[in-house]
Simulated scan of single mutants.
Amino acid sequence: MTQRPPLPPDLFDELCPSSLVPFRFGDKWAPMILRCLDDGPRRFSELRVPLRRVTQKVLTASLRGLEANGFVSRTVHPDPKLRVEYALTPLGRSVLEPLDAACRWTTEHWDELLDARENAENGAAPAS
């Protein structure tokens, strides 16, 4: 058996940049929210339309997480009827390109992903 080089010791260190991704961006709905905000600010009710499968509570928590980590800004407009809008920050906008690359990759490999999932559910060995 060929000996492989050891993994970097700081790979999972909390200060390692790669370790921040799952914690800062690990929410299932975060990528979809960011894509919804790509063309400009949106109100909560506008986000609920394309994200109809997410509950109000989870969407609120996701938006708060994105805001706390600098991806999204929240602006309260004190009009006669209180209006809140969410928008991408420059940091949030900067993640759209890698997010789009991940979406393209997923589209290109969709059939393989579905096959792998089906095999796993049926207890079959993964394809090599």
Score class of each variant (00 low, 15 high):
Gln3Thr: 14
Pro5His: 05
Leu7Ala: 15
Asp10Phe: 12
Asp13Ile: 01
Asp13Pro: 02
Asp13Cys: 02
Glu14Gly: 06
Leu15Cys: 09
Pro17Glu: 04
Ser18Thr: 14
Ser18Val: 15
Leu20Val: 01
Val21Pro: 02
Val21Tyr: 10
Val21Ser: 06
Phe23Thr: 05
Arg24Asn: 11
Gly26Leu: 01
Gly26Cys: 06
Asp27Val: 02
Asp27Asn: 15
Lys28Tyr: 13
Pro31Asp: 07
Ile33Pro: 04
Leu34Gly: 10
Leu34Asn: 09
Leu34Ile: 15
Leu37Arg: 03
Asp38Gln: 14
Asp39Gln: 10
Asp39Arg: 10
Pro41Phe: 03
Arg42Thr: 00
Arg43Leu: 07
Ser45Leu: 02
Glu46Cys: 03
Pro50Glu: 08
Leu51Val: 09
Arg53Tyr: 14
Arg53Cys: 11
Arg53Val: 15
Thr55Phe: 00
Thr55Val: 06
Lys57Gly: 02
Val58His: 08
Leu59Val: 07
Ala61Lys: 12
Ser62Ala: 15
Arg64Glu: 15
Gly65Pro: 06
Glu67Leu: 04
Gly70His: 12
Val72Cys: 12
Val72Leu: 12
Ser73Gly: 08
Val76Lys: 11
Pro80Leu: 09
Lys81Gly: 09
Leu82Ser: 13
Leu82Cys: 10
Arg83Met: 11
Tyr86Pro: 01
Tyr86Ala: 02
Thr89Gly: 13
Pro90Ala: 13
Pro90Asn: 10
Gly92Asn: 03
